[in-house]
Design a protein around this nucleic acid. Structure first.
Lengths: 158, 158
DNA sequence: TTTAAATAGTACTAAAATAGTCCTGTATTC
DNA sequence: GAATACAGGACTATTTTAGTACTATTTAAA
């Protein structure tokens, strides 16, 4: 339905936690505990974010993650790119224009325009701004919830 | 992956065909033949578009569909709304703010901003513009293809 | 030097959303 | 009344997403 996936949203929660920690090294387990998300899930997300170079990692005992850059320099577009691949409103709006039906199929152009505008909007929002509305979440209230940002059940519209 | 669904894209193909027909009544079968899409699929799409009042229908023998308005007055936002429900980048970015976790969950604001900008971009593109890049498609080339806008296989990026 | 804690990578399973089909009913024309 | 076409809903199959598990590697500390 034209929305970001749950994992991407969880990803912003994880990144927000790291932003809050400000340079301090946090392990996946710690982040999971702080956000209420599952440890394997957090771990998976951090690996993806590390590969996209939005966070840096240190291995070994006492290892963990920290933001690769200041929160203000990480954009929503980058987060989405990292966690769900490049934003593309249609399958054929990528740069790689190597379709065998190219002469016939001509959807491209306008969707690509839209795509560009969406990308622009996403590139304009930084982690700082995403974080702004997500201040210190009282841990005690999160514990009973399965996910850091509870949703996905019946009626939890915000 | 943050994209519109195939059905929505098919929908624009169907609408483009109707725009081309310019007021002439076309049956689902005719549109299916002209676009290369499956008849049941086209039929389903047209029903949804009719309910959203983007097309009008006439029942009975010699019935069919035509655009409810001029192509220039139908926007991408409306098409997406009709075929996949209201555009919302996250589940909680709708108007209906009745979440039981509202005090705790605070994702809202910035995603909603993004959402609004995306909506604006989509509302700015009309069917005419979507159609522009999709001129007369030679039927003969479409026949062997399973879908009007062939894709979804391995390497068919446009 | 061994053990424990942590990330890296990959593969797999389960659940949910999407796509596509079919059937039954109703309206309209011939 | 028969044929054609839309309306609505239900159902099935496929694909995508979410979540988990396992193995390997790295590092710190006992």
């Amino acid at each position: 339905m034209f929305r970001i996936s749950k994992l991407t949203d969880y990803g912003t929660v994880v990144l927000a936690r790291l932003a809050e920690a400000d340079e301090e090294l946090l392990s996946a387990t710690e982040i999971a505990a702080a956000t209420g998300l599952g440890t394997p899930t957090v771990s998976k997300l951090l690996k993806q974010l590390a590969r996209a170079e939005l966070v840096t990692s240190e291995r070994g005992a006492n290892g963990g993650y920290r933001l690769a850059r200041a929160p203000g320099a990480i954009t929503a577009a980058e987060i989405i790119d990292a966690l769900e691949g490049p934003v593309a409103i249609t399958e054929c709006s990528g740069q790689d224009s190597s379709c065998e039906f190219e002469e016939v199929c001509t959807v491209g152009n306008s969707w690509q325009q839209i795509n560009l505008q969406i990308r622009r909007a996403l590139a304009d929002i930084s982690l700082t701004e995403l974080q702004k509305a997500r201040p210190v979440i009282p841990t005690i209230r999160l514990v009973p919830m399965p996910a850091g940002i509870p949703r996905g059940n019946k009626s939890d519209q915000h």
